[in-house]
Amino acid sequence: MFRFLVTRISSSLFALLIITVIVFLLSHLSGSPVDALLPDDATQEQIDSFVREWGLDQPLWQQYLTFLVNAVQGNFGTSLKWPGEDAMGFVLDRMPATLKLGGLAILISVVIALPLGIAAAVYRGSAVDHGAQMFALLGQSMPNFWLGIILIWVFSVWLGWLPTSGMGTFAHAILPAVAIAWFQVSALARLTRSAMLEVLDAEYIKLARVKGVSEGMVVWKHALRNAAVVPLTYFGILAASILTGSVVIETVYSWPGMGWVALEAIRGRDFPVVQAVIIAYAVVYMLSNLFVDLLYVVVDPRIRRG
C-alpha cells in the first residue's frame, strides 16, 4: 500500500512538471511578451532594457529553469491587468469561492446520483428506472451555459425565488451549483446503475441472500461495496472537472472565482495570472485524483494488500 501511494504521488509530481513545461512553452509560442507588454511606440532602448530585465536574452532552457525555480516558490510575477497584485496570490484569493461552489456541486451530484443509480438498478425496468434514465438523458443533453440561463429565467425571473447572480448568501450558490451538477448527476447515476446491475447478478450476492441477509444489506453492503469502484473512478474526473471546469458557469452567474479570473486574465493577456491559474487548476486536479486513489485503498482490499 505504501508503494502504491509513493508511485501515485511521484507520478502526480512528474505530471505537474510536464505541465510547467507546457505552460512555459505556450506562453512563449503565443508571441513575444515584448509585443504584449510594451506599448506599440516603445523605443529600442526601452525594449532592450525590458528584455534584459525579464531575462529574455538568455537561452530558453535557462529561462525555463528560472521560471521553475520561481514557480516552486509560488512566485509567478505580478499581474499586468491588476497592477501590484501578486499573480498566484490573486488566484489563491479567488480559490475559496470556486471551492465553495464546486464543493456544493459535488455534494449535490453524489447525494442525488448514488441513490438514483442504485434504485434504478435494484428496480430495473420499473417506473423508477425509466424516470432516472429520463432525468439522466435531460442532464446530458443540455449544455450547462444554456441550463444556467434557463434556471435563471425560471427560478429568478419567473418565480423570483433565487437571486440571478453574484456571490453572497447560500441562496446565491444554489442555481450555479445545480447547473454544474446536473450533467454530472446524469453521468454518475448511469455509471452507478450499470455497475450495480453487474454486481447484483454475481454469485456472492446470491450467497449473501442464501445466508439470510436482508435485501437492504445485500444492496447497500454487499453489492455497493463492490460496485463502488466504478462510480469512484468517475468521481475523480467529476470532482476535478467541477473544480476546474466552472469557467462557463462562473461567467454566467458572475461568480467571482478562479474561472472568472482565468477568463479575465486571458482577455487582458495577463500572462503571469494565466500561468498561475493553470498551475493552480493542475494542482487541484491532481489532488482530487490522489484523493480518489486513497479512497480506492479503503474500498478495495486487493489494492490495500497488493
Binding site: A202, E203, Y204, K206, L207, A208, H222, R225, N226, V299, D300, P301, R302
Partner: peptide, 8 residues
Amino acid sequence: TSLNPAFT
C-alpha cells in the same frame, strides 16, 4: 465467485 471479494 461465490465469496464477496470486498470482505474477509
